[in-house]
């Protein structure tokens, strides 16, 4: 067993090496930047969970517009559990993810049967009906003002998770864990089946794949991780309001994902990192940012429709093909 692990490490030294460098950078990063920027990094980590889980759903071919409300579902669940019922953060974290997943599972029944145009609108309506519930029902959701006094996650008493840097590490660990699980899923047979469905749903059906089941599965799993992202967001902002999970956030999510591309696992991450960096750079022009993003997205779709990742692909199709041919999974 140990030998196998050692062999694996040696075999995959190159990407393990890169991963370790990346990890080291991410660990020292908060000490290299200003406090405000640490806050931005925390939100970026949360957005990374959001885009990667979104991509998970898109691998079956459907672009869900209910993803941001699903994040809200997790956020509201943890607000109610921790602030309302006094459940500890560490129990509330998976439970709130689960709450989003259960909600997604229920909604996926009509959604998984629709495609294309109908899926956009139906998924939006599904998400928006959640948001309307939060707005409308003052108990327990607090209406427009939302819920406040969400407690700081408890940890060993020596660590104060209300400060940005410790919270950054919390978010980093949880993000890494989520990405690891989703990466694993992406590379498993399940992930392959998702992609097969998006390539050709009819053929998949004729080969005995229960397309509706797999679509519901992807939607549910993706929403679980969106819910986890929502938990991290709620405990950082100490409050949740319905407006956070409105359509504007969804539009940004779409822009990040399209800009990065959805073919590969790293594409959406690239998109959200680059565009967050860009919007921080453009801070002085913040009123113009949506217009700049709008222009970017239209130009992206016209001139390089595969997104940022596609740029890389243009130069390395041969390399990639060789890896496939060798029966190896492409490494990223």
């Amino acid at each position: 067993m140990i030998r196998r692990i050692l062999v694996y490490i040696v075999d995959n030294f190159r990407w393990i090496g890169w991963l370790m460098i990346l990890g080291a950078v991410l660990i020292v990063l908060p000490y290299m930047v200003r406090t405000y920027q640490v806050e931005v990094l925390i939100l970026l980590l949360i957005d990374i969970i959001l885009v990667v889980s979104f991509r998970l759903i898109t691998t079956t071919g459907g672009w869900s517009l209910a993803h941001v409300p699903m994040m809200g579902c997790g956020a509201y669940a943890t607000a109610l559990l921790t602030a309302g019922l006094g459940v500890p953060f560490w129990i509330s974290l998976p439970l709130s993810g689960l709450a989003a997943a259960v909600m997604a599972f229920i909604l996926s029944y009509p959604l998984a049967r629709t495609t294309g145009f109908a899926f956009f609108v139906a998924s939006f309506a599904a998400g928006d009906s959640l948001r309307l519930c939060w707005t409308r029902f003052k108990t327990p959701f607090g209406g427009h003002k939302g819920l406040t006094n969400i407690p700081v996650p408890e940890f060993f008493s020596s660590v104060d998770l209300s400060a940005p840097i410790p919270y950054y590490y919390l978010a980093l660990v949880i993000t890494a864990l989520c990405l690891l699980i989703m990466f694993r899923l992406d590379r498993s047979r399940i992930g392959h089946t998702f992609k097969a469905i998006s390539m050709n749903a009819d053929l998949s059906r004729s080969l005995g794949i229960n397309v509706t089941f797999y679509k519901m599965l992807a939607f549910t799993i993706g929403s679980f991780f969106a819910g986890v992202a929502g938990v991290l967001l709620a405990h950082r902002l100490w409050a949740v309001v319905p407006a956070q999970f409105g359509f504007v956030t969804t539009l940004y999510l779409l822009v990040w994902v399209v800009f990065g591309g959805t073919r590969t696992f790293h594409g959406p991450i690239l998109g959200v990192v680059v565009l967050t960096f860009l919007s921080e750079l453009l801070k002085p022009l913040f009123e113009w940012v949506p217009m700049i993003f709008g222009t970017i997205i239209i130009l992206t779709l016209i001139f390089f429709p595969e997104g940022l990742e596609g740029l890389g692909h243009r130069f390395t199709p041969w390399l990639d093909r060789q890896r496939f041919a060798a029966g190896d999974e492409p490494r990223h």
Binding site: L251, V255, P290, M291, F293, G294, T295, I297, I298, L301
Partner: peptide, 8 residues
């Protein structure tokens, strides 16, 4: 998505 860009 293009129409979303146009909205912005």
């Amino acid at each position: 998505i293009m129409s979303v860009g146009l909205v912005f």
